[in-house]
Design a binder for these strands. Sequence first.
DNA 1: GTCTATACCCAGATAGAC
DNA 2: GTCTATCTGGGTATAGAC
Lengths: 187, 187
Amino acid sequence: MDTRDRLIESTRELLWERGYVGTSPKAIQERSGTGQGSMYHHFRGKPDLARAAIRRSADELRDRAEDAFAGPGTVVERIGTYLGRERDALKGCPVGRLTQDFGVMADPELRRPVEETFAWLIDRLTGLLAEGRASGELDPGLDPANMASALVAVVQGGYVLACAAGSATLYAQAVGGALGLLAGHVR
Amino acid sequence: MDTRDRLIESTRELLWERGYVGTSPKAIQERSGTGQGSMYHHFRGKPDLARAAIRRSADELRDRAEDAFAGPGTVVERIGTYLGRERDALKGCPVGRLTQDFGVMADPELRRPVEETFAWLIDRLTGLLAEGRASGELDPGLDPANMASALVAVVQGGYVLACAAGSATLYAQAVGGALGLLAGHVR
DNA sequence: GTCTATACCCAGATAGAC
DNA sequence: GTCTATCTGGGTATAGAC
């Protein structure tokens, strides 16, 4: 991993742990083992570096989700795989947590990848649910868009509850409830 | 409203808008129209003031929720009132957002009110759902604890989605999905 | 590409006058 | 109770040497 890459990876970790406002160039340099000079040679400043880090985290989330969505099994099984995938619930979502970060939301360049990620996720799930409904796997009365939003919300809210309680169990409980929701719509 | 109160209210607003790390004593003083001297006379420092502000926000959330839970109507109606209550979705939850704030979670004094609020909320909802199940209003197969976690998660996740999209509609969609979930369990 | 020196401003707090 | 002065440290960035 070259210097530029180490800077991005360290920034990703720090953004995940402490958010944008709470992450200083100095901390990034220390974690990545690089000096001021290197950082300002490869990036114009903190926002520029954060932009690269956020884009990478967003891409990763998308790829991992797509792995589950495009995998084998029925629509409900694939969504179940996505929801149940082991997650580091106590650390929060590396992308979702940025929506609660003032510094990120105030900068359009930083905000856009976050916005696009959730738009894609909900859209992808909506399509999957519509597909399941069309094939007869799911109840015709199900509203794909509402259900997709609710499912993504349960995941994001599950992180919040787990962080609040200091226990990953809450995440599992919330997802368990959501799976019950979906199961109720299987024909 | 006296000086002490203005300081607490200004801090509440700033914590809501910018989080703990992003809120400086200077900003608090400016918003409340008080000087350094006053702030450090009434409070020992930023953490002390934040503690008072967070406790007040937590109490308010609890009181507003209890209004809905203790109101008239069936269990499902009361929960629907709680979920559907107009919320400032784009500003996020004044308590929930603190779970994603490193500065808050790292300080036990600041963290405790947040933790207690969600524990109370889930517990209260679990009790309500159990009551509905016992009275025959809800399906005997419903798991009150899981469902309570899922409902609170949808609310918290709804805030995340709304912030990400810059549109309160997403919050409404997620809640719509959650209400569908509950409706499916009415006998 | 990376290093060190330097600069400026703000965060957070203390001290003592009024 | 409130004001102003003052202090230390860190955030963020630039300049120029190597």
